[in-house]
Design a protein around this nucleic acid. Sequence first.
RNA 1: GGAGAGAUGGCCGAGCGGUUUAAGGCGGCGGUCUUGAAAACCGUUGAGCGAAAGCUCCGGGGGUUCGAAUCCCUCUCUCUCCGCCA
Length: 433
Amino acid sequence: MLDLRFVRENAEAVKAGLSRRGVSLDLTEFLALDAKRRAVQQEIETLRRKRNEVSEEIGRLKKSGQPAEDKVAEMRAVGDTITALENSTREAEEAQRNILLTIPNLPHVSVPDGKDENDNVEIRRWSPQGEEPPKFAFEPKPHWDLAEYLDIIDFDRAAKITGARFALYKGMGARLERALISFMLDLHTMEHGYLEVLPPFMVNKTSMTATGQLPKFEEELFKVENGTYFLIPTAEVPVTNIHRDEILAEESLPVLYAAYTPCFRREAGSYGKDTRGLIRQHQFNKVELVKFSKPEDSYDELEKLTANAEEVLKRLGLPYRVIVLCTGDMGFSSAKTYDIEVWLPAQNKYREISSCSNFEDFQARRGNIRYKAKGGKKTELVHTLNGSGLAVGRTVVAILENYQQSDGTVIIPEALRPYMGGADRIVRRDGKS
RNA sequence: GGAGAGAUGGCCGAGCGGUUUAAGGCGGCGGUCUUGAAAACCGUUGAGCGAAAGCUCCGGGGGUUCGAAUCCCUCUCUCUCCGCCA
């Protein structure tokens, strides 16, 4: 959410910033509403002041046994006026907040202008051999064929159990998923300084609103039927909300959390996209990194966060590139986003495996997350950041495709072997390969 | 699921219709003392809006009243006991 006062005083700058995103916003009604609301607020406060003073006087009169009937009657009328004005202003307040909640964040100056994903800008590439991904001596198979041959993921039975876009992991497949979660969490907690948390997988409406999923994107969420909770679409939601309505001490910043959670997404509007395989699922696992930082440090923290996520791919020896999303492709709450894309040889392209964003104070304002400088007088909003470190299912995809052998078996990256009971290769359970 | 008790500033905790403009303690900050620290003592210290005057905030929402932290209704959460349960 943008600052109400900032919008009022910088309406043109706000419109200009949003137009970079391809969003055109008419603020005339909003500003008129705001002016009227503030005028009424002034009136209410003047009346309240009068009521406070006279009520105090009534108290004194009654105590000393003097009559106060006329003043009581007068204040009864004032009270009625206040109630009427409050009712009219409440509506205006709500209308204003509802508008503010649907305005996306302003892009940072360093974000390139652009319309859609075609205008994103590549920043760097990495591969075990330098920059370019290695060439295969044979035609690399898609991960779903490999998974079926190795009998480690069963999409048909998952469809029977639940429906489309779900997966049943088996044997070394299930173990690989679990190994990756442990590997990622160990790296981030033991080497990158994050604190591991395991949050609830369902959250309330207030939490969803603070991080920006609500009120605008409810159609992306699963809502539980017997209550008011939503399944989390990312750990960003529960973890960022850890400090909702709190004032953090300056010396505790930055606060760094790493969390494994499953994520649940409706994927409305993506019919026909990535229908085969693990790429786009209604339920997937993710290790998420979340930071709370001082405003002046947040862009340095974004670079570090992105590097922390990249380190997972480096340790696993998976080729990737980093791109910066253009203004038109960024998420609603973000001021700047880097996507990390991993190389998938069977698709012959890079696919998103992590998204690292600085939200500046956009989420902090919605969630009222502040900090106070040591000895300082004012509280200030923190900046929030997060990034995948990494999406686990897509990491499985990348390992299967990049480490596949011509016989259909898959080499296990060395860094992962301690988590796989020492195994160095995924083979069929019947021994055939 | 049943019965009861609660929710007050960073934390603990008093207040239960009108000097609460929220006591007191802890913690924080500043100072005196000290070679330094501790202890002791003194001072200071909640949040939001507003240019200011001032207004608002005692879990959320609603009500009673001239006036609500205080009374009523309702919701949420916490705790204790009982029952059930992985």
